[in-house]
Design a binder for these strands. Structure first.
Lengths: 227, 227
DNA sequence: ACTTAGATTTCGCCG
DNA sequence: CGGCGAAGTCTAAGT
């Protein structure tokens, strides 16, 4: 990894054109060819960057990073006016088994709800996870207390797209005469207002589920809103 | 800006829990409180991070970054086992940081099309930009050569979501008796194959517009596909 | 190679 | 401050 602190000007051209005027910034060149240009504020996101694979061409006072992007080319031109620091560190093999382990993402939520489908609706029993349709799998397929079919879409944050997605699935599912009356439920940690409105219009129910409740196996306290 | 190259282990807890095992990494602490942990590969995105505002608490061999996130708290715990580099640079006052100037984003496309609505369809005249509906504004509302209403959704890349979005708007718009017969046009620099198919099914027209053509005011050469 | 869907999405705008 | 939509989204997974 190479770290350069320098006064520089950056031009990007590719999917759009961008000009970053001269100022003091951090340039990171990673072992895999990644190049990042960071300011001393505005966390997370680089001002400019190029993801690998890249070809880096360097001359004194100038660095050009290229990338093949289909017919055209992405290009990052860094004009360097003053260098305050330029150091390189060998950080070891990249195939380290030091990968990031996450817990609490949507997949996890799906696992927990598969174990406790009744949290998605009164009397729900799981028929199968990842129920296939011709445009992709529905997260959960259940039957309710009246033996009616219910398709459940699970999201961490339930927005309009989630309602649309479930609506598309239902359209396909209901083509099967046996599933003609299949209902839909959107289950999410939070369901946004606009999504609630749209769900209402699409006759899709929604329910907010609490990850902590699912984990602790506390009383669910169903907050279900029918379509 | 502070740059630390160190062998470290990182734990994040907040919206989810994540564990990053011990390895050699770059830690960036920005002047505004941003903290980034980068590996020597996998461009752009930090393995772990915290965006400002943050409170940083430091002891030898340990750094804890906290953030108020509503009721709960986001927390980044960095255990440092070996330090290879720890330098700090004064990168100047924040107002010194020249901003990034972009050109070619959707807003730009919308401006250009608002000036030349005929590029979205034969004889189109602009009635207003950002026409409000109860679920959000439509980019352009026009009338065509036959005085019929047309809602135009503008995207850089037109995918399925763009068609769905426009369909949602049309559903709302047409509730007004005066706009019952309002048509829809998706205008994008590129319209994806799947989106074309869906547009056909939804009776929405689409057109690919060329940014260069709009800029140069060359003859548009309308490539419009009716619904 | 292309498409789809998730993300600690981040970010900016507007209410 | 919260909601909503764009992003050079990025990224991983499936086909």
């Amino acid at each position: 990894m190479r770290l350069i602190v320098a006064r520089c000007e950056v031009r990007y051209s590719g999917r759009l054109d961008a000009l970053l005027p001269e100022s003091l910034r951090l340039i990171v060149v990673k072992a895999d060819g990644s190049v990042l240009v960071h300011a001393d504020a505005g966390g997370y996101k680089p001002l400019n960057w190029m993801t690998p694979p890249t070809v880096i061409e360097e001359r004194p006072g100038r660095m050009v990073v290229r990338k093949r992007a289909g017919a055209s080319e992405d290009r990052l031109e860094i004009e360097i006016y003053e260098v305050l620091c330029d150091v390189t560190y060998d950080m070891g093999s990249p195939d380290d088994h030091a990968a990031l382990a996450k817990d609490g993402v949507e997949a996890h939520l799906q696992e927990l709800l598969a174990e406790r489908p009744e949290c998605c609706g009164e009397g729900f029993r799981l028929v199968r996870r990842e129920w296939p349709t011709d445009i992709g799998p529905v997260d959960l397929m259940c039957r309710d207390a009246e033996e009616q079919w219910v398709a459940v879409e699970i999201k961490r944050v339930g927005g309009i797209e989630a309602v649309e997605q479930l609506a598309r699935y239902l359209e396909r599912i209901r083509r099967d005469p046996a599933l003609r009356s299949c209902r839909g439920v959107l289950a999410a940690q939070t369901v946004k207002p606009q999504a609630r409105v749209l769900a209402q219009a699409r006759r899709i129910a929604w329910v907010e589920v609490d990850l902590a409740v699912l984990r602790d196996e506390r009383e669910p306290e169903l907050k279900l809103f029918a379509a």
